[in-house]
Design a binder for these strands. Structure first.
Lengths: 342, 342
DNA sequence: CTGAAAGCGCTTACAG
DNA sequence: CTGAAAGCGCTTACAG
C-alpha cells in the first residue's frame, strides 16, 4: 500500500499539499500544475487514504451505526432507504446491526458502538431492544437518535404520527359506512411502550368524531402468526356465526400482523372484504403484491429515515435539534382490495 | 475519553500490561492482583479501546463489507442472517451496502471498500452490480468472496447448486403427474450471467430423466411485476382457452417472481393449483404466510452466508480456500398450497 | 513483570 | 506554497 508520503515524494510536493488535495481543502491554493502532478502520482501509485489514520487525527469516522429490530422486517425497508440516502448525502457510511444479536454485553454491540468506531447511532424501534442494550447505547456519550417516541427521557427522537395514521385508517372505514370497527394490536413489546396506546387513541378519536362507540382493542402481537391466531380465535367465530357483536371492519396496527389476519380469514372461510374489511398500517411492497391486495395507510417512512440522519448529523456537529413527531407529511389511506362498504 | 495511558496510570502499571490485558494476551503473565487493578481502572474510567488506533497498528479492522443488490430483497434474509452469525463467530462486524447506491465511482463504494476500512468484502449476486463496481471491488487487492458462481475468473466464490434446486422443483411436479411443465425465468440481468442457463439445465435434466420433453423457457425478469406480466400475457390466455399446449405446471426461477405469477393468476381467474400448479425457488417467510401458501424448494441460504464468511476469514488469514458449490445440504421441495396433481 | 521508545499514516499548526 | 515536526492512541519489540 502506497502512503501519502510516497505520493508526496512521487509528485515532488510536500505531504500537507497532498493531504489538502485529498480533502479538497480550499484554504491552501495550489497551481493547476501541482494539482495535476499530485493527481497523477495518486493514480500511478493506486493510493487510497488510510481512513483509520484519518479518524485517529480527526476523531471522526464518518460511520453511523444503525440498529434495527430485525433485518428482514419489511416495514423497515423504506426507513433504511431513507437512512442510506441521508447518509450518502451527509457523507456517512452505514454499519447495520440486528437487535437480535444485540443482547446486552454482546460483542457485536461493543464493536458497533465502540466510541472510536462510529460518530453516532440511529436506533429504530427501541421497544425491541432490551434495557441493557438501550442503556449501553445511550450511556456511552455517543450521539443517538431514536426513530421512535418511546424514549423521551432526555434522548433525541423522531417519530411518525401513529395516532394520526390510525385515525386516518379508521376514518377510511367509517367513510365506507362501517360502524362496528375493531382495533387490532396492543400487546406491548416492552413495559416502556406507549406506542400502542397512542395508536388506539387515534382509533378512538376517529370514532368519536363520528359519534360512534369505540370497542375494546383486540390484543395481539405484531407477528403474522399472532395476527393469525387472534383473528382465528377472537373474530372468525363471531363472524361465521353472524353474531350481532361481530365487527364488520378491522383496523390492524401493522401490515405484518394484517398479513396474518388475511391468511386466517382465508383459512376460516371469511370473505375479505365481503364479510369483513381490513385495513393495515404502513404497508410494504409485498402487501401490495399479494392477493387480495391490502388496503393500508401510507406513512412517511422514507422521510423518517432520511430526516433521522439529518438530525443525527446536526447533533454530531454540536447543534441543537428538537425531538418531535414528523407531522408535515400527512398519512394517506390507500384503498386496495381488502376494504369495501358493509 | 480515557486513554490506555490513563488506565495504566490509575492502575499503577505500564501501558503494555493494560494492552495485553485488553487483548487477552497469553504471552505476558500477570498476577491476579495486577489483573484486578487493571480491571478496576478500566471500569472506573469507563475506558473503551480506540479501535481506529488499534487498526492503525495491526492493519486489521475486523470489519467486513457486505454488498447486496438491494437491502429489502427477501431472498437475502437468510443469507444475511448467516453472514451476521458467521461474522460474530469470527469476530467481525458488518458494514452493509446496497448495490443500488453502489454505482461506479460512488462515494459510498469508496468508503465501504477503502483499503483501510474493511478487512474483506462479501458480494452477493454480483450480476446485479455494474462492471465498474465489480472491478472496483476486485481490483483493490482486498480479499473478496462472491456468493455467486458467475465470476469464476480468478475470484473466490461460493454458490448454491441452482441446477439441482430447479431439478428438485421440477421433479416434484413430475411426481405429482405433470407432463406439461413450463420453466419461468431466463432474462439475464447482465451479459455475464450464466445463472439462468444453469437453472434451466436443472429443469431439462429432471424432465429427461422421466422421458418428458423439455419446453422452451418463458423468458421473464425476476421482479414480481415481471412475473405478473409474463404469466398474464404468455400463460393465462392459453390456460383460459384450454389450449392443448397450455402448461399444467410452472417451475418459477424465483419466489419473488412467483409472487407476481400467483397475483396474475388470481386476477385472470386461473385457479392455483386447480388449473395450474406453481412451485417457486427458495421461498421466504412471506411466501409461506400469504395465501395460497407457495410451494417452494428450500435452499441452504443461511449456510451460504455463514460459510461465505468462514471462507473470507480464511482468505484474510492467508490460507487457501477452493471456490465451489455448496453441495452437502441438498435442496428439498416444500409442498404447500400451490402444487397438486393435474 | 517495568518503563522508555519507536512507529503505524495521517492532519495540523508553524516558521520560513 | 515548502519542510520539518508534533501528536492522535495504541502495539510491539527491547533493555532492564
Amino acid at each position: 500500500m502506497a502512503t501519502l508520503k510516497e505520493v508526496a515524494k512521487a509528485a515532488g510536493v510536500s505531504m500537507p499539499i497532498v493531504s489538502a488535495y485529498l480533502r479538497g481543502s480550499t484554504s491552501i491554493r495550489m497551481s493547476a500544475d501541482t494539482r495535476r502532478r499530485v493527481a497523477t502520482a495518486i493514480e500511478e501509485l493506486g493510493y487510497t487514504p488510510n481512513l483509520a489514520t484519518r479518524s485517529l487525527r480527526t476523531a471522526r469516522t464518518n460511520v453511523l451505526a444503525v440498529v434495527v429490530p430485525e433485518l428482514d422486517n419489511p416495514a423497515l425497508t423504506d426507513v433504511l432507504r431513507g437512512i442510506y440516502d441521508g447518509a450518502t448525502r451527509h457523507g456517512y457510511v452505514i454499519m447495520l446491526g440486528d437487535a437480535v444479536q444485540l443482547t446486552s454485553g454482546s460483542q457485536t454491540l461493543q464493536h458497533l458502538l465502540s466510541q472510536s468506531r462510529v460518530d453516532g447511532v440511529i436506533v429504530t424501534r427501541s421497544s425491541a431492544l432490551d434495557e441493557g442494550v438501550l442503556s449501553g447505547v445511550a450511556g456511552r456519550g455517543l450521539p443517538v437518535v431514536f426513530l421512535d417516541n418511546e424514549s423521551t427521557d432526555g434522548h433525541h427522537w423522531l417519530a411518525l404520527d401513529d395516532a394520526d395514521g390510525i385515525r386516518v385508517a379508521t376514518e377510511h372505514l367509517v367513510e365506507l359506512g362501517h360502524e362496528q370497527i375493531d382495533f387490532f394490536g396492543g400487546r406491548d413489546i416492552s413495559p416502556r411502550s406507549s406506542m400502542t396506546k397512542l395508536r388506539y387513541a387515534g382509533y378512538i378519536a376517529a370514532l368519536q368524531a363520528h359519534k360512534l362507540a369505540p370497542r375494546p382493542p383486540v390484543i395481539c402481537g405484531q407477528e403474522p402468526e399472532q395476527g393469525y391466531e387472534a383473528f382465528s380465535t377472537m373474530v372468525a367465530p363471531r363472524v361465521v356465526q353472524r353474531r350481532r357483536d361481530a365487527p364488520t371492519a378491522l383496523v390492524v396496527n401493522n401490515a405484518t400482523t394484517a398479513m396474518g389476519v388475511l391468511a386466517a380469514a382465508y383459512d376460516a372461510g371469511v370473505a375479505i372484504p365481503g364479510d369483513v374489511s381490513v385495513i393495515g398500517y404502513h404497508g410494504t411492497a409485498v402487501t401490495a403484491m399479494a392477493r387480495p391486495r391490502m388496503s393500508t395507510v401510507r406513512m412517511p417512512m422514507y422521510e423518517l429515515g432520511s430526516r433521522g440522519v439529518a438530525m443525527l448529523d446536526k447533533i454530531i456537529g454540536g447543534e441543537f435539534m428538537p425531538s418531535g413527531i414528523l407531522e408535515d407529511i400527512p398519512p394517506k389511506a390507500i384503498a386496495r382490495d381488502t376494504t369495501a362498504s358493509p
